[in-house]
Every structure is written in C-alpha cells, then in structure tokens.
C-alpha cells in the first residue's frame, strides 16, 4: 500500500461510506484506466441501481465516477477514469492508485436510473460517457429488457468497445466521426417504438446537441434522461463573504473553495450528497445578496428569486451574502 493513498481526514462526501481495496487496474486506452475495488475482508458489496455513481476520496478532495457494473449482487465496484491533466487532480490521483491501496468511497448513489416502464432503452454515449451506459446495457441484458447503444469515440480512443460489442452485438452502433454520428442520431430518433426512453452521457455540449435534436424531432422531456456528472468542471470563482444570520458568524469563502467546504471547515456543515449541484440536498435559504447560481437543480424561476442556493457549487455575485443559518 502506498502511504499517500489513504488520507486520515475523511471527506464529508464519503462519510459513513466504505473502505475498499484496489483489486485490479486495467488500461482501457492511453488516457482511460479501469479500477476495481473490493472489500478487504472479501464480503459482498451493497447492490446498486444501474447508472449509479461512487464518490471516491483522493487527498482532500472527492470525485464522483459512474459504476460500470449492472449493480446486481456486486462483489466488486469498477469505475473507469479519464485522465484530465489540467483538472483538480482527482483523475491523476486515481491513475496513481496501485493494487492493494485502500480508498474511502461513498455508498453507490443513483441519479441516472433506467425507467422501469420503458419498452426500449436508447443509450447514447460519447467518450468517457460510456461508463454509465455500460451499467445500463449490462442491467438490460440481465433483465432481458431491450437496449440499443450508440457510442461515439475518437478512433483508437474507445474505452470498453470490446465489452460493448460482446454485450450488445448488433444493438451497438459505433461512430468515430461527427458526420456519421449526426446521421445515425437522426435515424435513431425517428425510428423508435413508443415507450422508448433516451439516455445520454458525454461532454456537456454533446449532451445538449443530442437533447436539442431529440426535442426538435418531437421527443417530450419525460423521455429524455441525461447524466449531469458529465458536465464540465466549474471554475474556481471569486472570493466572497457570508454572514450567517442565526449563528452570528461571518465567513470568508476564498476562490477555489466552495461555500459548502467553507461551512464545513467552520464546523457549520449542512446536509449534502452529490456536491455537484445535482441532488438538491445542500439547499440554503438566502436572506440578502444575489447568489451566482451554478447548479442544475433549481429552476430558472427559483434561481431568479434569489431566495435559495445550492452551496456546493453556487457562489455570490455580491461581495457579501446573508444566509438563514
């Protein structure tokens, strides 16, 4: 075990989670590695809903990664990590893990589940967005439900291509250039039987394109599902001050530190889960000041009301915010 892998301080996102051992590393492509975790005592792991993710601690930070298994009776958890050289450092830390290292992880969390009543699952993935789709495809195969996967990747850069081929056979369409993908997408979007649900994961711009095209072709919102963890990382933001009205405490939130982290550091932690502006758990009432909303949870109307904010990602437009805390 390397000395740096396990941190003494437990990140709040993995508190009450699991302590797992790296059991296997497998290189998928030049920049993607799969990491398999098991319980050091060899016990079975909690099952999960297809499309779930795992929060893994690295150093002082923690990142969410999609689990690639079907989630039924797992004895191991596998994630695939794309190395991002100019990111916050999470993916680099994952790529440095060695077999035998211990890591703290959360319990699996479901935020991208298959629709139980769907008559067909149309899965659309780009690049590393393949990971939750692999989970969906495996679950569909196990449950004998119908799934089709359209997978876009750069030539020679496709992670899990072989597994996808074996899992899906003729139900897999591979695209390695933009033009052929646009054609394939339009063809698929205009030829799905009723009861089909669409799931998309990949870079934010890719997801936007797919969802916009689907809406254009008459797909209602209820049939469209996207994995927001594919969203781009947010910038560090400007420093600001928060005034906690009920506690009478004033805190500085420096650039690069989230309001949630600042609250936790001051012993004022609030309930939270995804820490990515998705789940809505860390909502805080705002008494004064205009938050800089960066979450995917609040509606446009709620955002413009400026009475609530998601403290995990949102910051402040004003120098000072007053919170009902």
């Amino acid at each position: 075990m390397t000395a740096t892998a396990l941190q003494a301080k437990v990140h709040p996102a993995v508190e009450g989670g699991l302590l797992l051992e790296v059991a296997d590393l497998s290189v998928q492509t030049a920049s993607v590695t799969s990491i398999t975790f098991t319980d050091p005592a060899g016990t079975a792991l909690p099952g999960y809903v297809p499309g779930s993710h795992l929060v893994v601690q690295y150093g002082d930070g923690a990142n969410a990664y999609s689990l690639t298994g079907s989630g039924r009776h797992p004895s191991e958890y596998t994630i695939s990590v794309l190395r991002v050289d100019d990111g916050a450092g999470g993916s680099l830390a994952m790529h440095r893990l060695a077999v035998g290292d211990l890591v703290r992880v959360s319990h699996p969390r479901s935020a991208f589940a298959p629709v139980a009543t769907a008559r067909h699952h149309l899965l659309i993935a780009a690049g590393i967005g393949i990971t939750p789709m692999l989970s969906h495809a495996r679950a569909a195969a196990e449950r004998d439900s119908e799934a089709t996967l359209v997978y876009v990747y750069r030539p020679g850069q496709g992670a899990h291509v072989q597994e996808a081929r074996e899992l899906l056979g003729p139900a897999l369409a591979e695209c390695t250039d933009r033009g052929s993908f646009q054609e394939e997408l339009t063809r698929r979007l205009t030829d799905q039987k009723l009861g089909t649900h669409l799931y998309v994961c990949g870079p934010a711009a890719f997801m936007d394109t797919v969802l916009a095209r689907a809406r254009e072709l008459g797909w209602p919102q209820g049939r469209l599902h996207s994995e927001p963890f594919g969203a781009a990382e947010l910038d560090q933001g400007e420093p600001f001050t928060v005034n906690l009205a009920r506690s009478g405490v004033t805190l500085e939130v420096p650039a690069g530190v989230s309001l949630l982290e600042a609250l936790e550091n001051a012993g004022k932690g609030v309930p939270n889960m995804c820490r990515k502006g998705v789940c809505g758990e860390c909502y805080l009432p705002v008494l004064r000041g205009a938050p800089l909303h960066r979450d995917l949870y609040l509606s446009e109307q709620e955002k413009s009301a400026n009475t609530t904010m998601m403290c995990c990602v949102s910051r402040s437009l004003d120098q000072e915010l007053e919170l009902d805390l």
Partner: peptide
C-alpha cells in the same frame, strides 16, 4: 396504429 407509430407521435 400505435404499434406502427414511432416516438414523436401525439
């Protein structure tokens, strides 16, 4: 009729 139709139908 619905079995012949495709997503996008109203």
């Amino acid at each position: 009729v619905l079995e012949q139709a495709r997503v996008g139908v109203r």
